[in-house]
Simulated scan of single mutants.
Amino acid sequence: MAQQYTRKVIREVFVQMLNERPLSKITVKDIVNECEINRNTFYYYYPDLYAILAEIFQTELQTVIEEYNDTLSWEESFLAATKFALENKIAIYHVYNSIQKEELEKYLFNVAGNVMTRYVEDASKDLKASGEDKRLIVSFYQSALTEMLLHWISSGMKEDPPKVIHRIGLLFDGNIALSLERSAKLNDSW
């Protein structure tokens, strides 16, 4: 129990610091001083700062997986899945502008993929869409959503994500279902 608490405190302090300054300006010394632990305790849990970041993203992805609600639209699910990023915009911006950018990209790609996979699977329950077509649809939306998020981050995160995602939902409403229906018809004609 104490181990989980210590890990949690280290992660929280790290995120707090990322919301205040770039990743390159955070040191292990800063974290151990703020957490009031010694360096050996830090290194018992993490080999370096990047391991904390990887664990944070993995934990957040696990939360997305556990909290997915198939009664939500893909837009609502995606916004719920990106809650951590929206609540920690400055930290995300700092990670984006660091040598750990790939970790952020992987996290966003995995979140988008998880949301879209579950949504497409749910939307295709009563259709005979092929597995390959479902993977293509997921991949298309996963890539598009990830790239949109990365562009939003790189441009300073000025737009309101719920507003943009809602607008995308309105513009593309029904396209996933239509694609799945087309897949089922294409399968019947082969």
Score class of each variant (00 low, 15 high):
Y5I: 12
I90M: 09
Y46K: 09
E121S: 08
K163R: 07
N97D: 12
N175C: 14
V95I: 15
Q16C: 07
K128V: 03
E34F: 09
E34T: 15
V120H: 09
M1E: 11
V115Q: 02
L150C: 05
A54L: 05
A184K: 06
F42D: 00
R7D: 01
V13I: 14
D30K: 10
S155G: 06
Q3C: 03
E60Q: 15
D188F: 04
G156F: 01
K89W: 02
H94T: 00
Y43D: 01
W74R: 09
E34S: 13
E60W: 04
I31E: 05
L23G: 08
L49Y: 00
T63S: 09
Q16G: 11
E36Q: 15
K29H: 12
L53Y: 03
S130R: 13
N33V: 08
Y5W: 04
Y68I: 05
E159A: 13
I90W: 08
N19D: 15
A123K: 14
V138C: 01
L149E: 00
R167P: 02
L108E: 04
F109Y: 13
S179P: 06
E60I: 09
E67Y: 02
I176G: 04
K25G: 02
D188G: 01
P161Y: 03
Q142I: 04
Y5P: 00
E34C: 06
A144H: 02
K101D: 10
E60N: 15
E12R: 06
R167G: 09
S130H: 11
E121Y: 13
E181D: 08
L61C: 08
Y43N: 07
P47K: 14
Y50R: 13
S98I: 13
D122Q: 14
L86R: 14
Y44T: 12
R135F: 06
I10Q: 00
V111C: 04
S98R: 07
E159C: 07
L178H: 11
D133Y: 02
M1C: 09
M1N: 15
K158H: 11
Q62P: 00
N88Y: 09
F78L: 15
C35N: 04
M1I: 11
Y43G: 05
L186P: 01
L180Y: 07
R11A: 10
L86E: 13
K158S: 09
I10Y: 08
Y50E: 14
L178R: 15
S124P: 04
Q100I: 06
A129G: 00
S154H: 09
N187L: 12
E75D: 14
L18V: 12
Y43A: 03
T71P: 02
W152H: 01
Q4E: 10
A91I: 05
K8D: 10
L127C: 05
W152K: 02
I90Y: 08
L49W: 03
L170D: 12
H151D: 12
G156H: 02
T82R: 06
M116K: 02
R118D: 00
D160R: 08
D188L: 12
